[in-house]
Protein backbone atom coordinates (compact mmCIF):
# COMPACT_ATOMS: atom_id res chain seq x y z
CA UNK A 1 0.00 0.00 0.00
CA UNK A 2 1.43 3.36 -1.04
CA UNK A 3 0.71 6.23 1.30
CA UNK A 4 3.34 8.59 -0.10
CA UNK A 5 2.48 11.88 -1.74
CA UNK A 6 4.61 14.46 -3.52
CA UNK A 7 4.59 18.15 -2.69
CA UNK A 8 7.10 20.03 -4.80
CA UNK A 9 10.46 18.34 -4.26
CA UNK A 10 9.24 16.64 -1.11
CA UNK A 11 8.07 13.09 -0.91
CA UNK A 12 5.93 12.77 2.22
CA UNK A 13 5.57 9.31 3.77
CA UNK A 14 1.85 9.94 4.11
CA UNK A 15 -0.54 12.82 3.36
CA UNK A 16 -1.04 13.96 6.97
CA UNK A 17 0.68 17.11 8.20
CA UNK A 18 0.19 19.41 11.16
CA UNK A 19 -1.26 22.87 10.60
CA UNK A 20 0.98 25.77 11.48
CA UNK A 21 0.26 27.38 14.83
CA UNK A 22 -1.45 24.33 16.28
CA UNK A 23 1.57 22.12 16.86
CA UNK A 24 4.08 24.55 18.36
CA UNK A 25 7.62 23.72 17.29
CA UNK A 26 6.91 19.98 17.38
CA UNK A 27 8.38 19.17 20.76
CA UNK A 28 5.23 20.24 22.63
CA UNK A 29 3.40 17.23 21.17
CA UNK A 30 6.30 14.79 21.04
CA UNK A 31 5.12 12.94 24.15
CA UNK A 32 1.75 12.24 22.52
CA UNK A 33 2.72 11.66 18.91
CA UNK A 34 5.57 9.70 17.36
CA UNK A 35 6.75 12.52 15.13
CA UNK A 36 8.45 9.99 12.83
CA UNK A 37 5.02 8.84 11.70
CA UNK A 38 3.84 12.22 10.41
CA UNK A 39 3.87 13.14 6.75
CA UNK A 40 5.26 16.53 7.70
CA UNK A 41 5.50 18.86 10.65
CA UNK A 42 4.60 22.46 9.91
CA UNK A 43 5.86 24.67 12.71
CA UNK A 44 4.43 27.86 14.17
CA UNK A 45 4.86 30.89 11.89
CA UNK A 46 8.22 32.63 12.17
CA UNK A 47 9.41 36.13 11.38
CA UNK A 48 12.92 37.56 11.13
CA UNK A 49 12.62 39.06 14.61
CA UNK A 50 10.68 37.69 17.61
CA UNK A 51 7.13 38.96 18.04
CA UNK A 52 5.25 39.43 21.28
CA UNK A 53 1.73 38.72 20.03
CA UNK A 54 -1.67 40.07 21.04
CA UNK A 55 -3.11 40.87 24.47
CA UNK A 56 -5.31 38.17 26.08
CA UNK A 57 -7.84 36.68 25.89
CA UNK A 58 -6.40 35.14 22.75
CA UNK A 59 -8.69 32.15 22.29
CA UNK A 60 -12.38 31.68 22.77
CA UNK A 61 -14.58 28.74 21.94
CA UNK A 62 -17.61 29.13 19.66
CA UNK A 63 -20.07 26.45 18.51
CA UNK A 64 -18.04 23.62 16.94
CA UNK A 65 -15.05 25.90 16.60
CA UNK A 66 -12.73 28.39 18.15
CA UNK A 67 -11.60 31.92 17.49
CA UNK A 68 -7.96 32.79 17.98
CA UNK A 69 -6.03 36.01 17.89
CA UNK A 70 -2.56 34.96 18.96
CA UNK A 71 -1.00 37.69 16.85
CA UNK A 72 1.81 35.60 15.39
CA UNK A 73 3.78 35.45 18.64
CA UNK A 74 7.03 33.69 17.82
CA UNK A 75 10.65 33.40 18.92
CA UNK A 76 12.10 34.61 15.62
CA UNK A 77 13.98 32.72 12.93
CA UNK A 78 17.43 32.75 14.56
CA UNK A 79 16.17 31.48 17.93
CA UNK A 80 14.20 28.79 16.13
CA UNK A 81 17.28 27.61 14.25
CA UNK A 82 19.39 27.62 17.41
CA UNK A 83 16.93 26.29 20.00
CA UNK A 84 14.18 24.32 18.28
CA UNK A 85 15.51 22.91 15.02
CA UNK A 86 18.13 20.57 16.60
CA UNK A 87 15.28 18.71 18.30
CA UNK A 88 13.35 18.35 15.03
CA UNK A 89 16.42 17.11 13.15
CA UNK A 90 16.28 13.87 15.15
CA UNK A 91 13.11 12.79 13.41
CA UNK A 92 12.60 11.11 10.09
CA UNK A 93 9.90 13.44 8.83
CA UNK A 94 9.69 16.51 6.65
CA UNK A 95 10.02 19.79 8.51
CA UNK A 96 8.18 22.65 6.89
CA UNK A 97 8.67 26.12 8.31
CA UNK A 98 5.82 28.58 8.14
CA UNK A 99 7.02 32.17 7.88
CA UNK A 100 5.85 35.71 7.20
CA UNK A 101 7.16 39.24 6.87
CA UNK A 102 5.95 42.80 7.00
CA UNK A 103 7.28 43.68 3.56
CA UNK A 104 8.24 41.90 0.35
CA UNK A 105 11.86 42.42 1.32
CA UNK A 106 11.32 40.79 4.74
CA UNK A 107 9.59 37.80 3.16
CA UNK A 108 12.53 37.32 0.82
CA UNK A 109 15.13 37.72 3.57
CA UNK A 110 13.33 35.23 5.80
CA UNK A 111 12.99 32.70 2.99
CA UNK A 112 16.64 33.05 2.00
CA UNK A 113 17.83 32.51 5.56
CA UNK A 114 15.56 29.51 6.19
CA UNK A 115 16.52 27.85 2.90
CA UNK A 116 20.17 27.84 3.87
CA UNK A 117 19.66 25.73 6.98
CA UNK A 118 20.08 21.98 7.22
CA UNK A 119 16.94 20.28 8.53
CA UNK A 120 14.38 22.59 6.95
CA UNK A 121 12.82 20.75 4.03
CA UNK A 122 10.13 23.11 2.90
CA UNK A 123 8.67 26.55 3.42
CA UNK A 124 5.09 27.61 3.89
CA UNK A 125 4.54 31.28 3.21
CA UNK A 126 1.87 32.81 5.37
CA UNK A 127 0.19 35.57 3.39
CA UNK A 128 -3.14 35.10 5.08
CA UNK A 129 -3.08 35.66 8.84
CA UNK A 130 -6.35 37.33 9.88
CA UNK A 131 -4.78 38.82 12.99
CA UNK A 132 -2.40 41.25 11.34
CA UNK A 133 -3.17 44.89 10.73
CA UNK A 134 -5.48 45.67 7.84
CA UNK A 135 -2.82 46.89 5.41
CA UNK A 136 -0.89 43.62 5.82
CA UNK A 137 -3.75 41.62 4.34
CA UNK A 138 -2.90 42.86 0.83
CA UNK A 139 -0.25 40.11 0.62
CA UNK A 140 -3.04 37.55 0.54
CA UNK A 141 -5.94 39.46 -0.94
CA UNK A 142 -4.52 41.69 -3.69
CA UNK A 143 -3.54 39.41 -6.61
CA UNK A 144 -0.89 41.85 -7.85
CA UNK A 145 0.86 42.02 -4.48
CA UNK A 146 0.50 38.27 -3.99
CA UNK A 147 2.27 37.71 -7.31
CA UNK A 148 5.07 40.10 -6.35
CA UNK A 149 5.70 38.64 -2.90
CA UNK A 150 5.60 35.01 -4.03
CA UNK A 151 7.88 35.81 -6.99
CA UNK A 152 10.33 37.55 -4.69
CA UNK A 153 10.49 34.52 -2.41
CA UNK A 154 10.71 32.09 -5.32
CA UNK A 155 13.79 33.94 -6.58
CA UNK A 156 15.73 33.28 -3.37
CA UNK A 157 14.78 29.70 -2.60
CA UNK A 158 15.03 26.35 -4.34
CA UNK A 159 13.36 24.28 -1.65
CA UNK A 160 9.70 23.38 -1.74
CA UNK A 161 7.56 26.48 -1.45
CA UNK A 162 3.95 26.31 -0.29
CA UNK A 163 1.75 29.39 -0.24
CA UNK A 164 -0.94 29.44 2.44
CA UNK A 165 -4.06 31.12 1.16
CA UNK A 166 -6.69 33.19 2.87
CA UNK A 167 -10.37 32.24 2.69
CA UNK A 168 -11.21 35.91 3.23
CA UNK A 169 -11.28 36.59 -0.51
CA UNK A 170 -13.95 36.52 -3.18
CA UNK A 171 -12.19 34.05 -5.47
CA UNK A 172 -9.68 31.73 -3.84
CA UNK A 173 -9.06 29.81 -7.07
CA UNK A 174 -7.80 33.04 -8.65
CA UNK A 175 -5.41 33.60 -5.74
CA UNK A 176 -4.14 30.03 -6.07
CA UNK A 177 -3.53 30.55 -9.77
CA UNK A 178 -1.59 33.71 -9.03
CA UNK A 179 0.59 31.84 -6.53
CA UNK A 180 1.17 29.09 -9.07
CA UNK A 181 2.13 31.59 -11.78
CA UNK A 182 4.57 33.22 -9.35
CA UNK A 183 6.36 29.92 -8.84
CA UNK A 184 4.74 28.25 -5.82
CA UNK A 185 5.18 24.48 -5.64
CA UNK A 186 1.89 24.03 -3.79
CA UNK A 187 -0.89 25.96 -2.12
CA UNK A 188 -2.36 25.25 1.31
CA UNK A 189 -5.85 26.27 2.31
CA UNK A 190 -7.72 27.42 4.17
CA UNK A 191 -6.30 29.68 6.81
CA UNK A 192 -8.84 30.74 9.45
CA UNK A 193 -11.91 32.78 8.60
CA UNK A 194 -12.14 36.20 10.21
CA UNK A 195 -14.73 36.20 12.95
CA UNK A 196 -15.73 37.72 16.24
CA UNK A 197 -17.72 37.05 19.40
CA UNK A 198 -19.22 39.39 21.99
CA UNK A 199 -19.97 38.76 25.66
CA UNK A 200 -23.53 40.05 26.00
CA UNK A 201 -23.21 40.61 29.76
CA UNK A 202 -20.16 42.86 29.61
CA UNK A 203 -20.86 43.98 26.02
CA UNK A 204 -17.17 43.52 25.36
CA UNK A 205 -15.53 41.50 22.59
CA UNK A 206 -14.51 38.07 23.82
CA UNK A 207 -11.05 38.41 22.27
CA UNK A 208 -8.46 40.99 23.34
CA UNK A 209 -7.85 41.73 19.67
CA UNK A 210 -11.64 42.17 19.04
CA UNK A 211 -11.57 39.97 15.92
CA UNK A 212 -9.84 36.67 15.33
CA UNK A 213 -9.64 33.63 13.08
CA UNK A 214 -12.28 30.91 13.22
CA UNK A 215 -11.15 27.29 12.99
CA UNK A 216 -12.55 23.86 13.80
CA UNK A 217 -15.40 21.74 12.40
CA UNK A 218 -17.55 24.87 11.98
CA UNK A 219 -15.51 25.93 8.93
CA UNK A 220 -15.05 22.54 7.27
CA UNK A 221 -17.71 22.80 4.54
CA UNK A 222 -16.29 26.17 3.46
CA UNK A 223 -12.80 24.69 3.34
CA UNK A 224 -13.90 21.65 1.32
CA UNK A 225 -15.62 23.92 -1.20
CA UNK A 226 -12.53 26.10 -1.53
CA UNK A 227 -10.22 23.10 -1.99
CA UNK A 228 -12.55 21.81 -4.70
CA UNK A 229 -12.56 25.16 -6.53
CA UNK A 230 -8.80 25.50 -6.23
CA UNK A 231 -8.07 21.95 -7.38
CA UNK A 232 -9.92 22.66 -10.62
CA UNK A 233 -7.96 25.88 -11.20
CA UNK A 234 -4.32 24.86 -10.65
CA UNK A 235 -1.89 22.10 -11.59
CA UNK A 236 0.22 22.26 -8.43
CA UNK A 237 -0.76 20.18 -5.38
CA UNK A 238 -3.35 21.51 -2.96
CA UNK A 239 -2.92 20.94 0.77
CA UNK A 240 -6.35 20.95 2.38
CA UNK A 241 -7.21 22.00 5.91
CA UNK A 242 -10.00 23.53 7.93
CA UNK A 243 -11.81 21.60 10.63
CA UNK A 244 -10.39 18.15 9.95
CA UNK A 245 -11.21 16.04 13.03
CA UNK A 246 -10.88 12.46 11.78
CA UNK A 247 -9.91 10.30 8.80
CA UNK A 248 -13.32 10.68 7.15
CA UNK A 249 -12.82 14.44 7.09
CA UNK A 250 -9.31 13.98 5.69
CA UNK A 251 -10.55 11.67 2.93
CA UNK A 252 -13.33 14.15 2.11
CA UNK A 253 -10.70 16.86 1.52
CA UNK A 254 -8.68 14.52 -0.68
CA UNK A 255 -11.73 13.64 -2.77
CA UNK A 256 -12.31 17.38 -3.19
CA UNK A 257 -8.80 17.67 -4.61
CA UNK A 258 -6.29 17.77 -1.76
CA UNK A 259 -3.01 15.91 -2.25
CA UNK A 260 -2.27 16.20 1.45
CA UNK A 261 -4.12 17.46 4.48
CA UNK A 262 -3.21 19.38 7.61
CA UNK A 263 -4.68 18.88 11.06
CA UNK A 264 -5.05 21.94 13.25
CA UNK A 265 -7.62 22.56 15.98
CA UNK A 266 -8.18 18.80 16.35
CA UNK A 267 -4.72 18.53 17.94
CA UNK A 268 -6.12 20.51 20.88
CA UNK A 269 -9.11 18.20 21.21
CA UNK A 270 -7.06 15.00 21.01
CA UNK A 271 -3.27 15.35 20.89
CA UNK A 272 -2.86 12.14 18.88
CA UNK A 273 -5.45 12.98 16.19
CA UNK A 274 -2.81 12.99 13.44
CA UNK A 275 -1.87 9.37 14.15
CA UNK A 276 -5.53 8.31 14.34
CA UNK A 277 -6.09 9.93 10.93
CA UNK A 278 -3.11 8.17 9.32
CA UNK A 279 -4.39 4.84 10.66
CA UNK A 280 -7.92 5.65 9.53
CA UNK A 281 -6.81 6.46 5.98
CA UNK A 282 -4.96 3.14 5.84
CA UNK A 283 -8.03 1.24 7.01
CA UNK A 284 -10.19 3.04 4.47
CA UNK A 285 -7.77 2.08 1.71
CA UNK A 286 -7.80 -1.57 2.79
CA UNK A 287 -11.59 -1.67 3.00
CA UNK A 288 -11.95 -0.05 -0.42
CA UNK A 289 -9.09 -1.90 -2.14
CA UNK A 290 -7.15 1.28 -2.81
CA UNK A 291 -3.45 0.63 -3.19
CA UNK A 292 -2.21 4.17 -3.76
CA UNK A 293 -3.46 7.05 -1.62
CA UNK A 294 -2.91 9.41 -4.56
CA UNK A 295 -5.99 7.82 -6.17
CA UNK A 296 -8.13 9.64 -3.64
CA UNK A 297 -7.06 13.10 -4.78
CA UNK A 298 -9.81 14.70 -6.84
CA UNK A 299 -11.81 11.47 -6.75
CA UNK A 300 -15.10 13.26 -6.27
CA UNK A 301 -17.83 12.11 -8.68
CA UNK A 302 -20.05 14.86 -9.99
Amino acid sequence: MDLTVNIGKLKLKNPVMTASGTFGYGEEYSEFVDLNKLGAIVVKGLSLLPREGNPPPRVVETPAGMLNAIGLQNIGIENFIREKLPFLRQFDTSVIVNFFGDSIDEYAKAAERLSAVDGIHGLEMNISCPNKEANWSIFGTDPKVTFEVVSAVRKVTDITLIVKLSPNVTDIALMAKVAEDAGADAVSLINTITGMAIDIKTKRPRLGNITGGLSGPAIKPIAVRMVYETFKAVKIPVIGMGGIMNSSDAIEFMLAGATAVAVGTANFVNPSTTIDIINGIESFMVENSITDVKELTGGIKI
Binding site: E28, G53, F268
Partner: peptide, 22 residues
Protein backbone atom coordinates in the same frame (compact mmCIF):
# COMPACT_ATOMS: atom_id res chain seq x y z
CA UNK B 1 -6.28 31.47 34.78
CA UNK B 2 -6.86 32.15 31.07
CA UNK B 3 -8.92 30.65 28.27
CA UNK B 4 -6.96 27.62 27.13
CA UNK B 5 -6.99 25.52 23.97
CA UNK B 6 -4.17 22.96 23.89
CA UNK B 7 -2.89 22.83 27.49
CA UNK B 8 0.57 21.74 26.38
CA UNK B 9 2.21 25.00 25.34
CA UNK B 10 1.65 24.74 21.60
CA UNK B 11 -1.10 27.21 20.73
CA UNK B 12 0.09 30.24 22.76
CA UNK B 13 -3.56 30.97 23.54
CA UNK B 14 -3.40 31.17 27.35
CA UNK B 15 -0.65 33.73 27.80
CA UNK B 16 -0.52 36.35 30.55
CA UNK B 17 1.60 39.48 30.49
CA UNK B 18 4.70 39.33 32.69
CA UNK B 19 7.70 41.60 33.17
CA UNK B 20 9.55 39.29 30.77
CA UNK B 21 6.87 39.30 28.06
CA UNK B 22 3.92 36.98 27.55
Amino acid sequence: EENMACGVGACLGCTVKTKKGY
